[in-house]
Write a protein that binds this DNA or RNA. Structure first.
Lengths: 191, 191
DNA sequence: GTTTGTCAACCGTCCGGTCGGTATAGTTGC
DNA sequence: GCAACTATACCGACCGGACGGTTGACAAAC
């Protein structure tokens, strides 16, 4: 389909390479030399584009934040109108299939952890994305707390998967989704 | 009350020191030398008790897993009989106050992350603890998925706090708890 | 001819792990 | 009773390698 994409520029190639390394071999393996080699440039070449290692990490995380924001926006747009549209988008985001297994998200998690490892402040761009989602969530016509509970459950599921804390089969996943969907009913708990 | 506790032995002191470092200054600051100094032994002394750095990490994580298991057991024991007793214990564990702000848990998170950073396989002891809790959860008289949803939400909240992704005020927390408690009602969603 | 992008060689530091050694407390043989 | 030996606990100098970052050179683009 898009096999004729132009070759990415050096910074992009470097960011890609760094992500690949972090995903495949963990934070410790992400050295300037390794990233440079993987990207097909020299260490000096890498340092021309990212003057410090921290700049590289920041670049990775900024791109990640943009990606996450765009992805959520896409899921939201695909959602039919509903009083709890944002909440339902989160549910879809969490449970709908392509997303669940996506290697993309393993990579996102790896980048996230790598950044946190180096300096928690690097996470700020992502924090802003989540804060934005939470603001949207507040505008849903739902009893207070329901949206947050669903969001927290989604995050918990995601984290659990990242850390290999629990792997659930399709049945359990479906049951969880059903449970959370009860919380996303507009009339739920209305007085 | 117990101010006459005997001084801890060297391995315990080292583990304590390592935890303190990891919590206060992050994974990167946990070097053998730093841990040794903080524990008041020499590097050689530390290596006598923990032959590799990995052994130190494993020791930290094993102790953590034991602590978490004991803590959950205590919360569970404090719970009055109820068809969804384990689920309610998780709710209490997640939301009841002393636990929420506890510095202990910041430390637990730091140890967890440090271990994961070094080698994800190190997390196995904790994984076992969570698997055990999940088994208990399944025995609650609740529609399938409700317990899991609550557990995931608790994990999400915990992770969110660790990574500073979102900080919720007391009202939001209370609303979340109320929402999740609806899922912990035995009759909830019964046909 | 200067700016832009890239390179390879190099440096200083830090860190995990090794190693030879010390001190104290048993244990054994006589 | 004591010498010889062993085990336990600990010390700190040192080594080798890795890693982040610097430097100076160089070629193509403008």
């Amino acid at each position: 389909m898009l096999d004729r994409a132009p070759p990415p520029d050096a910074p992009t190639r470097i960011l890609d390479a760094a992500e690949r390394i972090v995903q495949a071999r963990g934070v410790t393996a992400l050295t300037l030399e390794a990233a440079a080699r993987e990207a097909g440039v020299s260490k000096g070449g890498l340092l021309y584009h990212f003057a410090y290692k921290e700049a590289l990490l920041a670049g990775m995380l900024n791109r990640l934040a943009d990606g996450v924001a765009a992805e959520f926006e896409a899921v939201l747009d695909a959602q039919p109108p509903h009083p709890a549209r944002t909440t339902r988008a989160i549910l879809a985001w969490t449970f709908d299939d392509p997303h669940m297994v996506c290697e993309q998200h393993q990579r996102a998690a790896a980048v996230f952890l790598a950044a946190f490892h180096h300096d928690p402040a690097l996470l700020d761009p992502i924090r802003r994305v989540f804060a934005h989602i939470r603001d949207r969530l507040r505008q849903d016509a739902l009893p207070p707390g329901h949206g947050l509970a669903i969001m927290a459950a989604g995050d918990g599921l995601f984290m659990g998967r990242i850390f290999g804390m629990y792997t659930m089969d399709a049945d359990e996943l479906a049951a969880m989704r059903a449970a959370l969907e009860r919380l996303a009913e507009p009339q739920a708990g209305a007085p």
